[in-house]
Simulated scan of single mutants.
Amino acid sequence: MGIRVSKQVKMASNSRFAGKTALVTGAGKGIGKGVAEALLKHGARVIALDIVEEYLQSLKKKYPEITTVQVNLGDWKATKQAIESLPTVDLLVNNAGVLKMCSILETTEEDINLLLDVNLKAYLNVAQVVARKLIAEKRSGTFVNVASIAANKPLEQRGAYCISKQGVQMLTEALACELGPHGIRVNGINPGIINTDMIEALGEKRIRLATERTPLRRLGEVCDVVDAILFLLGDESSYMNGHSLVLDGGLLKNL
């Protein structure tokens, strides 16, 4: 079974997020790129952060108005400095992540450090800096943390990855409780198997089985996740806080 090419995100330009500054991590490709493009089309000033300079250059060439930031999110100090140098952010999408296929018994210290540094600690680091600026300026904001259905159920050969994503879900709840009184909403999204480059690590057999077990009988597409994230960022979800939205086509029901 071949991996289908994701549908291009198509949204009409409007001013839904006009006047807002948005920061998207892992914006070089996949879900992050889709979110960055959609926010730009909806009127936001977009800051795209990624570790791969080549991806950022490609994004900048296509959208000259985007601000790009190249940094390794696994480096706490470098990330903190990079975020502190940015203007105040109204909309934060913590999206960057890494997937490591390995059993719990085979997981090394290097493996778990990588997964926790990028998938969890970086989310806290970025959120801290962004939230402190908003609070100091008495401004409201909206954060979305991208986790995974791996936060809801342990998955084969992805034990350590599941741990990191469960941490993201609890971080979302903790941030929502602490930041809510300051007018900052924090929600999460737990995608299922989404048709991006990352799923290649699963192999064709796992992808095929996941598709067959999904009641909708298809993989998720980038645009599916983008639409949900825009909902969580927008006024339509103004009373949602501390919630992690599962977006998996019903896959969890059949696992």
Rank of each mutant, 00 (worst) to 15 (best):
132 R>W: 12
16 R>N: 06
103 S>T: 14
249 G>E: 04
238 S>V: 04
21 T>Q: 06
144 V>Q: 03
133 K>D: 02
15 S>I: 02
143 F>H: 05
147 A>G: 11
86 L>Q: 10
115 L>H: 02
170 M>Q: 15
134 L>P: 04
163 I>F: 13
72 N>H: 15
101 M>S: 12
215 P>H: 14
142 T>M: 01
96 A>I: 05
210 A>M: 08
180 G>F: 11
21 T>C: 09
147 A>C: 09
243 H>F: 11
205 K>R: 15
88 T>M: 11
83 I>Q: 05
203 G>Y: 06
201 A>M: 14
163 I>H: 00
56 L>Y: 11
32 G>M: 09
37 E>I: 15
240 M>S: 06
164 S>L: 03
90 D>V: 02
184 I>Y: 02
107 T>G: 10
120 L>T: 05
250 G>V: 02
239 Y>T: 13
147 A>W: 01
85 S>M: 08
181 P>C: 02
128 Q>P: 04
43 G>W: 01
176 A>C: 02
2 G>T: 14
120 L>F: 10
236 E>D: 15
218 R>A: 11
6 S>L: 00
100 K>N: 14
141 G>A: 08
185 R>D: 05
239 Y>Q: 13
221 E>V: 05
86 L>S: 07
90 D>H: 01
100 K>L: 15
73 L>V: 07
50 D>V: 02
30 G>K: 03
59 L>T: 08
50 D>A: 04
127 A>C: 10
186 V>R: 01
